[in-house]
Design a binder for these strands. Structure first.
Length: 113
DNA sequence: CTCGTGACTTACG
DNA sequence: ACGTAAGCCACGA
């Protein structure tokens, strides 16, 4: 299993309305590759999990990478750029409040594996 | 193997 | 608060 896929797999464990950090994600993977986690999410197909040869088979392959943020509560990046509006929209839509580009009630919304 | 590149984190100034 | 530097690890060239 490629590292990226393990990352995405963990991402999918994050429930709606919760967030987690790159650090926590890395910890769940028993690695300290925080940056590699970021790389993995950047490469994330986001809804088009492509297995070599086989396509997504109509399964829900959604990877909620917008629920993964920085350890200090800031948003980090999304779709190749930082502080994406789209990411904010998605999070707010899931019931997470954004305060000055940071997560409000970070402690409450934080999901630990 | 070495190097450059990050959607990171922590520590300093 | 903000910028920098160093540490970190996976990945591709």
């Amino acid at each position: 299993m490629r590292f990226e896929k393990r990352v995405w797999q963990k991402c999918r464990l994050i429930p709606k309305g919760k967030v987690s950090s790159y650090k926590e994600l890395a910890k769940a993977l028993k690695t300290k590759a925080y940056r590699a986690v970021g790389n993995a999410l950047k490469k994330n197909p986001y809804g088009a999990w492509q297995t070599k040869g086989k396509s997504c088979r109509r399964q829900r392959c959604f990877v909620p990478c917008h629920r993964v943020i920085c350890s200090d509560g800031s948003l980090g990046g999304y779709q190749g750029k930082l502080n994406s509006k789209k990411k904010i929209q998605l999070l707010k839509k899931e019931g997470i409040k954004i305060k000055n580009k940071k997560i409000a009630d970070f402690e409450k919304k934080f999901f630990r594996f």
